[in-house]
Each structure stands twice: as C-alpha cells, then as structure tokens.
C-alpha cells in the first residue's frame, strides 16, 4: 500500500477513531467472508487485518473504498466478542461504505 497515498477526509469519521485497544467504543463495520460454497462470517467487527498480495493490510472504520487482491494467509477479524481467524487463499477484499467483503476461493476457519 505504500506507493498509493490514502485519501483521508479530515472532516470525516477519522476524527473520532478509537484507540486500538478498546474495541467496545469502536465503530462497527459490517464484515462478510464468503467462499464459493457458503458464507463463513457475516457480522459486525471493529477492525480487520487481511493478507493482501504484498503484505498485511488493516482496515478500520471510515476506510476509503478499496479493492485489494489477497494472497494466501491469515485473515483476522476483531469483534467485541473476540477474534475470529480464517485461512484464506485466492481471493480479494472490497471495502465500501464501511462494508467489508472478503471473497476467497478457499476459506478455512482457524481454531483457537
């Protein structure tokens, strides 16, 4: 992501972005994780860390619209109830209007 500057709307929702530690006051985004055969996850989350093709990318509330190609790796979804993790490969992530859709050919939940 380094070579592409993120346009930040200073008057937008960035002003009240929570500190990384406290999830309970974080604004929630809607996150969907979908594989060809089923939806693996659908619910609110405070932040998402996804394995992009060239390294991990983290998404918080108020992120600009984005389409990013994913590589193989671990997708972490931070929710109020704790973290959910998936192993994903061959897919992409779309972020628009605080809705995150992760589509991947292979999605496997990681236990624990």
């Amino acid at each position: 992501m380094a070579d592409q500057p993120t346009p930040i709307d200073r008057d937008g929702p960035w002003d009240d972005m929570p500190s990384a530690g406290d999830l309970s006051i974080a604004r929630q985004m809607r996150v969907k994780v979908i594989s060809p055969s089923s939806a693996a996850f659908d619910g609110p989350a405070a932040s998402v860390v996804a394995p992009a093709h060239d390294g991990e990318v983290g998404i918080l509330y108020g992120h600009a619209p984005m389409v990013v190609l994913l590589g193989t790796g671990e997708l972490r979804i931070h929710t109020i109830d704790g973290d959910t993790r998936f192993r994903v490969s061959r897919g992409f992530m779309q972020v628009v209007d605080n809705e995150i859709s992760v589509l991947a050919e292979e999605v496997e939940p990681i236990e624990g």
Binding site: Q4, H53, P65, M66, V67, V68, L69, R90, E105
Partner: peptide, 18 residues
C-alpha cells in the same frame, strides 16, 4: 473512488478466472 491494489488489470486477471 476506489483504491486499487494492485492495478485494475492485475486484479481483473485474477478475478476473471474465478
């Protein structure tokens, strides 16, 4: 306005087979 990473061509070349 979408941030595309990598370029649209490269994303498409991966997505169209899917």
């Amino acid at each position: 306005f979408y941030i595309l990473d990598p370029s649209a061509e490269e994303i498409l070349s991966q997505l169209v087979p899917l």
